[in-house]
Write a protein that binds this DNA or RNA. Sequence first.
DNA 1: TAAACATATGAACAATTATTCATATGTTAG
DNA 2: CTAACATATGAATAATTGTTCATATGTTTA
Lengths: 119, 119
Amino acid sequence: MKKIPVCENHEIHKNVVDELRPQMLSQEEYNDLSNLFKMFSDPTRLKILSALFQKELCVCDLVALLHMTQSAVSHQLSVLRQNRIIRYRRSGKNIYYALDDEHIQHIYNAGLAHILEEL
Amino acid sequence: MKKIPVCENHEIHKNVVDELRPQMLSQEEYNDLSNLFKMFSDPTRLKILSALFQKELCVCDLVALLHMTQSAVSHQLSVLRQNRIIRYRRSGKNIYYALDDEHIQHIYNAGLAHILEEL
DNA sequence: TAAACATATGAACAATTATTCATATGTTAG
DNA sequence: CTAACATATGAATAATTGTTCATATGTTTA
């Protein structure tokens, strides 16, 4: 004789959950938010972002700075671009990338504060 | 006749890169930081975190709130635990989870501010 | 116009990840 | 002690992801 192992029948717990529910975001908002944080979840992208915090840079600058292939850097720039984290402008043969939003640095710094405190 | 397509020979660009380099973090710091943000890069984990911002909860509360299997929730709790994002305490048959650090909510809010502004 | 340069992009591949299923562990009630 | 409950965990799997390789696109120079 099997029972579903979920404690929804406990009245106390049910009330707790009912109180929480209205405060939750929508599925779409959680998706958007997780996609945003995904942009910060790779070391290469973090390097690119922290370089762009300092100044606008072209792709070859980033390639030289990161010691990575041009293709790998370009692919990550493409991801950041598509998620509106960075923007670009063309200048002759070069394409210069820059941050699209000052929020980005704020998110980055909030994370950095956390890992620097963990010593 | 092939040439390496990297603009390091351009003196201007080289100076730019040399100025940036000392400001960069170490590889290990970028790894730690990306791992931290990875914790926020999944909708299920974000739901768990935003629920725990409000109050300490046991696993079955989260299962009821998220409408997910106990196993899926438990696995994500395990990930968050191992990364020291949340802590737990046992109380009888239940295990209660709570945030380990108030930085977590700060990072979350910084991200949330960004997506809510994008309307 | 052709060659060189700077960057982008598609396909392929290995690595990582979120969930499910089955089962194990630890706790309490009877 | 045994059954029921609450939670954890290992294995399997499908989906996602970061990099590489090869090649395409767009710009400038000669």
